[in-house]
């Protein structure tokens, strides 16, 4: 479904992705962790080309992303992306946030889209918030609307960029529950997160990044309990004591 081949990216002189090789088959739940500045966000932002990269090849759903002539809007329509800061559209209700892309990208008619939108909001447990504006919702609720917004496009892949990092602790659970449910339904997911519980429960694989490199890959339990590399061990001890 996703295949990185020697992908390299620079921000000016800063080498943020170094020779990334990674394959994510359909249906896999992949957790990406690592210290801040390690390139993990950049990595998943490359998958829907929110970031360009300069060297290497990246195939997503059969499409070559290193080829700059591909139809980006078509590709992005099939990939859900959930941001750390939610980025809901503040001038629209929750329902309008969810139906905007189905109406304008999938060319669904309004009734159909609203029906779909309400179903998606119900799926994230927010049926009663359809007409609320983002500012009237808590952080956890906003992030669940953002997930519903992604799901409304029936994506083949869902990408999560630190989806719980901006949330108050008591709201993290409600967002993770939705993500766990998605994972159990077989969605292909790449999740940048430090939520070890989530990783242990549903991730098929954890990758650890540091300084733009993919340092270690493993099954979640093995990775967290017995990391192979010193850097990963240090990192895990830090998030444990945190």
């Amino acid at each position: 479904m996703i295949e990185f081949k020697n992908v390299n990216k620079w921000f000016g002189k800063l080498h943020v992705l170094r020779d990334i090789n990674l394959e994510v088959p359909a249906g896999e739940v992949l957790v990406i962790c690592g210290p801040s500045g390690s390139g993990k966000s950049t990595l998943i932002r490359c998958i829907n080309r929110l970031e360009k990269f300069q060297k290497g090849e990246l195939y997503v759903d059969g499409q070559p992303l290193h080829d700059h002539s591909i139809n980006l809007t078509k590709l992005r329509a099939d990939i859900g992306f959930v941001f750390q800061q939610f980025h809901l559209y503040p001038h629209m209700t929750a329902l309008q946030n969810v139906t905007l892309a189905p109406i304008n990208v999938r060319k669904m008619n309004r009734d159909e889209a609203e029906e779909l939108g309400r179903r998606m909001l119900a799926r994230v447990g927010l049926s009663d918030k359809a007409d609320a504006y983002p500012a009237q919702l808590s952080g956890g609720q906003q992030q669940r609307v953002a997930i519903a917004r992604g799901l409304a496009m029936s994506p083949k892949i869902m990408l999560f960029d630190e989806p719980t990092s901006a949330l108050d602790p008591e709201m993290i659970g409600e967002v993770l529950d939705v993500m766990i449910q998605l994972a159990e339904e077989g969605m292909t997911m790449c999740v940048v997160t430090h939520e070890m519980g989530f990783a242990r429960q549903v991730a098929h694989r954890v990758i650890f990044m540091d300084e733009g490199q993919l340092v270690e890959t493993g099954k979640p339990d093995a990775f967290f309990d017995n990391p192979e590399t010193e850097r990963a061990a240090q990192f895990i001890s830090k998030i444990l004591t945190h």
Partner: peptide, 24 residues
């Protein structure tokens, strides 16, 4: 982030501007 969210959902540049950016 508003541009990014709109782009990530598959809206083209013109739609991003018209539906998401300009109203704000």
């Amino acid at each position: 982030g508003q541009w990014e969210a709109a782009a990530a959902s598959g809206l083209n540049k013109f739609q991003q501007l018209k539906l998401v950016i300009l109203p704000q």
